[in-house]
Design a protein around this nucleic acid. Sequence first.
DNA 1: AAATTATTTAATCAAACGATTAAATAATTT
DNA 2: AAATTATTTAATCGTTTGATTAAATAATTT
Lengths: 210, 210
Amino acid sequence: MKEITQIEKNDSTEEKIKQAAREVFTQKGYAATRTRDIAEASGYNLALINYYFRSKEKLFDIVMLEHLQTFVHGILGIVDDPATTLQTKIKILVTHYIDMLIKNPDLPLFILSEIKQDPSMLISKVGVGKMQHKELYIVKQWNEMVAITKKPSINPAHMIMNVVGLTIFPFIGSPLIRNRTGMSVAQFNVLMEERKTLIPIWINAIINIE
Amino acid sequence: MKEITQIEKNDSTEEKIKQAAREVFTQKGYAATRTRDIAEASGYNLALINYYFRSKEKLFDIVMLEHLQTFVHGILGIVDDPATTLQTKIKILVTHYIDMLIKNPDLPLFILSEIKQDPSMLISKVGVGKMQHKELYIVKQWNEMVAITKKPSINPAHMIMNVVGLTIFPFIGSPLIRNRTGMSVAQFNVLMEERKTLIPIWINAIINIE
DNA sequence: AAATTATTTAATCAAACGATTAAATAATTT
DNA sequence: AAATTATTTAATCGTTTGATTAAATAATTT
């Protein structure tokens, strides 16, 4: 029987291995990661990794599941809140994601790379079938807005790609951007902080084109 | 001595192997690609790949170099053209890239993933040190514009990230987007065609915020 | 057509890799 | 403290993988 006997749960060997695995997997991807890399990064022996997690793939699944949860964590509460306007929702969303991405800059490239390798993983390994078409409040608000402003309505998919692209892309392109401009991570993060207020303004401008 | 004795250069064994390598490397990335995958995809034996290209890495370098050339091909002529306006340049650039990306949808994720693995590759394996600070005509035009419109000037890096992000991100997120929306590649490409005209309009709206 | 060169393949090597084993050490229970 | 269980490690196994070799076949030259 496994019980929490230690003061901190993250002090446990299992947790430290998982932490090391998270770092190595996220940086190098599944294929480029060797189980020995995780062993070295964790400070433990190779066999111990398999003792705790049975296989490289099982350990990867845990890491990937946690990452996906990190990614969608909290957004349902934001987009389905009847108390906030559409503009406020966008502002909160962008701020929320930029904060998260500054802490986890290589999450998007990792997730999108691995999903591309095996898109079925989304349903098989992770249960991302929920939250589907629950008629979120943000959708209601979007429809109301396009009803009022009688402009030629563009596909909502465009606006989703715009918000997500403006927010996430800089982090995906960060290695290239910083290499070309000679920017430091700190300088880059300053720009990202700026984008917290800029992106909602830009999205607003895009929506309100005369 | 090697001469072009065949009618078509792409009929040569060497070219067919390179073609197969391009497909496999681009789809799966360097680490996940086995030389045997390339052999199978090309229809030739494993040893033949090494006979022509010495090693997996050498073959990869060739593929990567060609991809990077594809990516920057033609853009210098667009951004350094004194005959076109800033707005026209953006329109031509976006159209040019969307056309290219519809033909090579997994180029961005491939390039950005591999660059992240080894950013030094840009200078070591490929000579991407040129075209640096030649005072391109588009930069001159940008400076003129911010001089005329006396708005609080935002960092130009933001606008570059915006144009590139709006254009390229949908292709990077395509596997996830299509999985979530149930969109086909054809339907997705229709949206991308729409973005050829939409993105320049959106960028214009962002620039001309009152 | 004989000789030479280029192309193609089956078989194999050595290193890397994921995973297992058996044994040692530490912690917990009796 | 003895017995039992949990944790940790060195050594090793069987595949996979990148790469090579030697020999066969095809093409080209003399």
